[in-house]
Write a protein that binds this DNA or RNA. Structure first.
Lengths: 347, 347
DNA sequence: ACTTGGCACTCGGTAAACGAGAGTGCCAGA
DNA sequence: TCTGGCACTCTCGTTTACCGAGTGCCAAGT
């Protein structure tokens, strides 16, 4: 009872099942793979694998199907990363390099990922909390209102309008705005957003009581932008693929679609992964904390501008998915997106 | 053979079918509605309605189901607008009034519409081409790069970075930017975006040859923003409702989900409707040009900031939908969103 | 000229019965 | 420890039979 062969058998089962989507029996296995043993032997191995909880028989007289645990072992120990074809690589660069702004990058990325993997793609917008400030702009809007515009290194732009209860159209108002703008940029440019925000808070004291009434709300607005994690957004594509794969989901795709509309939950899922930006994380079936997604697997990885990870992206599909290929696609896309964001920053 | 009664029968059929989702027979009809005639009479009427193409029998011995044409007659001539309940109205205002920026308004709107109608909601972003310029801002980014920020009356903000090949950090550079900014705002503020763009083009001649090399790319960038109708975006919510209503769709929901991912197509659909902002447009089944959506109906209406329509929103569901209620919900939401956008503009 | 009750007929859907096929578990022998 | 053989189990697809809802039509009533 070589441990080794048993794992070979497991791998063969996973591969066949992924391909045919039908429970695989001992006979079919020995026919399709060179295992060098007879069907009866394979049956014994299967019985053991079943005891270990790696595979499972839907009913007495059907073939075996991998369990979540079985896929886990497959992913961790048995699969080799499948490199993308040359065509796929160029398709990725081609498609992504045409993007004109951040929205466009994200949009293209998610579509690309969906069509590449033929599953549901999820892309998180680069989060503010991990990015650095590139520029702060104050735009008087006539009257007492001022627009605060924040530009961060990922290309993302946030704006808030604040009402200061004081008319800024006077010459003094304008110089105040100008000096505030200058000081803020001096202080914040290049710093991580979170650090910049606390730094700006101390800036308030530099000004006279009167002016402080103007500066303070501006700083508050900036802090609010940071606090509003609500602003964390995800974008989806490829939901239609769920319908195509419908047979793979025990009940129906309804609960899955519902779960996908809970963006907050998706964000949490994407957030919970290793900090190593190169490491692709895989969450298989029940390992997934979200009810409704327990018949799916999520393959995700961080991406960012250059080395620092600012957000995540991933692919969601049935547990019966082609993990090596999906993981390769996810990783490749994340890399290119990071590259593009890095370029945008440096120029 | 009173024409009148036949329409009563049609209305009854539509109402019953919408409620039960089962073909309705003559007997059930006379039981549930006070038609004052016998089942046999109703059968005769039904035969006529079938000849007219308003209803249809799935097979010899089943009840009748409305055809697309039947629904059309129902919507145009037989349905009364069903006013929303007090609770629903307050729910709408409550939910929408908490929005902090344009993204948030659109996001909340689409979710609200989906949960209100329990169908798929579609909201188009306020389009630039129909809105007016509120402010133009030029932000030097250090070096030779300049960020052009456009703020329009719907609260939408667009930005582009242009590389001018000339260093602007010098004092002359700064005054040039300042004067360009001033002139641009003088010229463009308050004008419809399209008019403003052509107006700005003439501005180029005001400057000396040297400076023109700076101004020209900026104007070009603004024109590009306008041209890029690509930037027209839609947001969806409630796809999960499709799964719930799955039985209503002949084949599967796959093609529908696919069609919904073609945002360009959706935009075209939303664009093709009457200019009367108060008029709710209904496209029923086959009336719909998009293959894949031919088993669905789209209820849509324009909305905007104040009186001018700048975009559309709507609801997509099975042809077997509760038209009066859906139409009421769509109209009410559009009204409130318009109100909110109007407020944002005036303040 | 409509309306109505009666009646034969049609046809989809469900349930039961059945056979085929695939796959297993186990055992005895190599 | 592996292998061939064999009896057993269970799903799935097919066939058959039947029930009931609903229709279309007709002859009689108002």
């Amino acid at each position: 009872m070589s441990e080794d062969r048993r794992l070979h058998v497991l791998r063969a089962i996973v591969q066949d099942y992924v391909q045919t989507s039908e429970p695989v029996g001992s006979k079919a296995l020995v026919e399709r793979h060179q295992l060098g043993v007879s069907a009866a032997t394979v049956r014994n191995d299967m019985a053991l694998l079943e005891e270990e909880g790696l595979i499972h028989a839907p009913h007495t007289s059907a073939g075996r199907v991998p369990t979540d645990l079985g896929y886990r072992v497959f992913v961790d120990r048995l699969s080799e990363v499948k490199p993308l074809s040359r065509g796929e690589r160029t398709a990725i660069t081609q498609f992504l390099s045409g993007a004109v702004d951040l929205d466009d990058i994200v949009d293209r990325t998610v579509r690309l990922l969906a069509s590449l993997t033929r599953q549901v793609a999820v892309v998180q917008y680069p989060s503010l909390t991990r990015s650095t400030v590139r520029h702060v702009e104050l735009v008087p809007m006539g009257g007492t209102r001022l627009m605060v515009v924040l530009i961060v290194n990922t290309g993302r732009v946030e704006q808030r309008v604040v009402d200061l209860g004081r008319d800024l159209t006077s010459p003094e108002g304008e110089t105040l705005v100008a000096s505030a703008r200058a000081r803020m940029n001096e202080l914040a440019t290049g710093l991580p957003f979170r650090v910049a925000a606390t730094g700006l808070r101390t800036l308030v004291d530099e000004f006279s009581d009167d002016d402080r009434r103007v500066i303070e709300p501006v700083v508050t607005a900036i802090e609010e932008v940071l606090v509003e994690e609500r602003e964390e957004r995800v974008v989806l594509a490829g939901q239609a693929n769920l319908a195509r794969l419908g047979a793979d989901f025990p009940s129906s795709i309804g609960p899955i679609l519902e779960a996908l509309e809970e963006h907050v939950v998706l964000l949490r899922l994407l957030g919970e992964l290793s900090d190593d930006p190169e490491l692709v994380s895989v969450r298989i079936g029940r390992e997934n904390p979200v009810s409704g997604l327990q018949s799916t697997s999520l393959v995700s990885v961080g991406y960012g501008s250059g080395a620092e990870r600012v957000a995540s992206l991933g692919v969601l599909g049935p547990t019966r998915m082609d993990y090596p290929t999906t993981m390769a696609a996810v990783r490749a896309v994340a890399r290119y997106v990071s590259e593009i964001l890095g370029d945008a920053r440096s120029t």
